[in-house]
């Protein structure tokens, strides 16, 4: 079974077994992973589930919507690889996924 690796700013890794139907955000929330808040429950309204997804993994997920792009544009610690983890949907065909988390969500 593939896993999602959540890596904080100190390089501490929390590994969680993937579950189809979850998002990278909800999987974190349901496994007490610090650093992903998800205040709005996935409505793209808060950007408290901001994460960094390596370019090599972006092909496994749908691209940013206009709304996600606009939210990220003003998010703290914005980078090229920024994503809202509530928009990263997991399924059974994915390999291991690694995301890094910004310091501001701790």
């Amino acid at each position: 079974m593939a896993v999602v690796k959540y890596i904080d700013t100190n390089d501490n890794v929390t590994e969680v077994e993937m579950e189809a139907g979850e998002t990278v955000m909800s999987l974190a929330v349901n496994n007490m992973v610090d650093g992903i808040v998800g205040e709005c429950g996935g409505a793209q309204a808060c950007a408290t589930c901001h994460c960094y997804l390596d370019e090599s993994l972006s092909k496994y997920f749908s691209p940013r919507s206009e709304m996600e792009e606009a939210m990220l544009e003003a998010a703290p610690e914005r980078k090229e690889s920024s994503r809202l983890s509530c928009q990263l949907e997991l399924n059974d065909d994915l390999p291991d996924i690694e995301v890094r988390l910004p310091a501001s969500q701790y």
Partner: peptide, 11 residues
């Protein structure tokens, strides 16, 4: 429909 203004304002 202006998330950037919202995000900046909130901060």
């Amino acid at each position: 429909n202006s998330p950037k203004d919202f995000m900046k304002a909130k901060m």
